[in-house]
Amino acid sequence: MKRILGIDCSPKVEKVVSGLLGENDEIQYEPFHDNIALNGYQMIILEMGKNQEHVVQQICKLRYACNFQNIPIILIHARKKDIPSQPYMIAGATEVLSLSDPLPAFKHIINGYLIPNREPLTEEFEYLDPFIKNTCHIMETMAGIEVEFKKVYFSNTIRIFGDVSGIMGLSGNAEGTLVVTFYWELAKTIVAKMMGMDAGAIDAELIHDGVSEIINMISGSTKKDFVGKPYHFEITLPSVVVGPGHQIGYLQNTSVAVLIFQVGDQSFALHVCINPKMTMP
């Protein structure tokens, strides 16, 4: 059974959405509130209010509450004319739909987003486990922070939800991209602990440098684990991207493993896109 949460939905939207879902889909409706819990839901349906800024803030809070889980946020409006979707997509919406859209297309889109993400194969943990181990080790030794690996899913999207990402290009026997992504407050906390400073003294420049160092250390440590194996890679100089809804380019025809880690009640993600170019003798 798929569980869907409808937020601030009018009776008209409730009727349309309920008619599009399968018999085994369960939808629960409730008003928006800041402490909304999204665990266990496979989709969020949000009806668009009239105030764009308010809707954008709602989407940002919902996306943050997803804790980097790939939960689609579908924004629905009742306006007959097309509206610019970019502000809502940048905030974290997955799709912007209108009640005036043809129902068959509406149903196809909704049900398409309810298809589960692919789970990792057993053999894929051959290269994922070292990234998990080293990420936890780096955080615990460099920042004194206890980190718990929560889950992994595969994604084909280049969108990253978070405020700041450290990026490392991989080349050599294996090529690809490694990206660590944080929301701002957790990044500030971790960087402050790494530098032995009070979080209030951490500015944007220090966060930039700290996130760059984190992805550099994770990459460098994991590289050593792959010596003599098909996944052995060389690393480039790290770079950092800041801003909500930013996008990262990945190798074509190579899926991205999204590893989610938890620190207290907050989360961060490591995106692993790696493809071995040759088989080692």
Rank of each mutant, 00 (worst) to 15 (best):
I45E: 02
G40K: 09
S18R: 15
H232K: 05
E234L: 10
N216E: 02
M43G: 10
A199K: 15
A204G: 03
Y113R: 11
P102A: 10
D25M: 00
Y127K: 11
G112A: 08
Q58F: 00
A192Q: 07
M217D: 05
Q266I: 00
P104E: 07
M195T: 05
I158R: 08
W184E: 10
A269L: 08
A105K: 14
G49Q: 11
I90C: 01
T177V: 15
E123Q: 10
I109N: 05
W184M: 15
D101R: 03
A143T: 09
N173D: 14
Q58I: 00
M195V: 05
S219F: 03
H137S: 11
S165T: 12
M194T: 07
A78D: 15
K277S: 09
N51H: 14
G196I: 12
T122P: 01
I7A: 02
Y41L: 13
C9L: 14
Y183T: 03
F161Y: 10
K50C: 06
V263T: 12
L206V: 02
A192Y: 04
K188R: 13
K277D: 03
C60W: 09
T236S: 13
E53C: 01
Q262K: 15
R63V: 02
M197V: 04
F261C: 13
C9E: 09
D225F: 07
I158N: 13
A91Y: 12
M142S: 10
T236F: 10
S239Y: 05
M280G: 07
K151V: 03
A204C: 10
E234P: 01
I44G: 00
Y127A: 10
M194N: 04
F68Y: 11
E185Q: 11
F68L: 11
E119D: 13
H77S: 10
Q262L: 03
Q247H: 02
V55L: 15
G169Q: 11
I115Q: 15
N117E: 15
G6P: 15
L170D: 00
F233Q: 02
T157E: 15
L21W: 06
G196L: 12
D8T: 00
M139N: 04
L251A: 07
N253H: 07
L186Y: 06
L237Y: 12
T236K: 05
C60V: 08
V96C: 14
D163S: 09
G49K: 15
I167M: 01
V180W: 13
M89W: 00
A199Q: 10
A269E: 07
V272K: 09
Y41K: 14
K12R: 05
I218C: 03
G49E: 09
P104L: 06
K277W: 01
I44M: 08
A143N: 10
Y113N: 13
L99N: 08
F233S: 02
M280V: 11
I4R: 05
I235N: 11
I83T: 14
S155C: 06
T122C: 06
V258L: 01
L21G: 02
Q252P: 07
Y88L: 06
M197P: 01
Y231I: 03
N216A: 07
I7K: 07
G19I: 02
A174D: 12
A78F: 00
